[in-house]
Amino acid sequence: MADHYYNAEDLGKFGNIGEYQKEMADKFFSYYGEVFKDGALTAKEKSLIALAVAHAVQCPYCIDAYSSDAYEKGFSEAQMMEAVHVASAIKGGAVLVHGVQMMNKVKEISM
């Protein structure tokens, strides 16, 4: 075990997860491949969504993979940063909107 939790080389080993449970891994990767194909959304559009979600879930592997993928597919630096802002706004908004719950509770118990 390395003395840190994340290691860039581990991204390349993602495919190895099938060593411990092949059937589920095969199903996952085939599903994953299907999801990212051109469909009602283009593969390029999906790449930008993936980049935003990668930031929202704060997965360094996904950020690595989809920063490259989105840039390779032709998104500009500004477009990619705006996608990250979308993730940030939704995440920030999600925290803040819970403030309403907090207010509800306080109003319930206060005089």
């Binding site: 390029k44 490259s68 840039y71 390779e72 597919k73």
Partner: peptide, 17 residues
């Protein structure tokens, strides 16, 4: 051809764009 250290994306998708 890619302006950087990466491979080209799909030729068909690029052509459309």
């Amino acid at each position: 051809n890619p302006a950087g250290a990466f491979l080209p994306p799909s030729q068909d998708a690029l052509e459309k764009e």
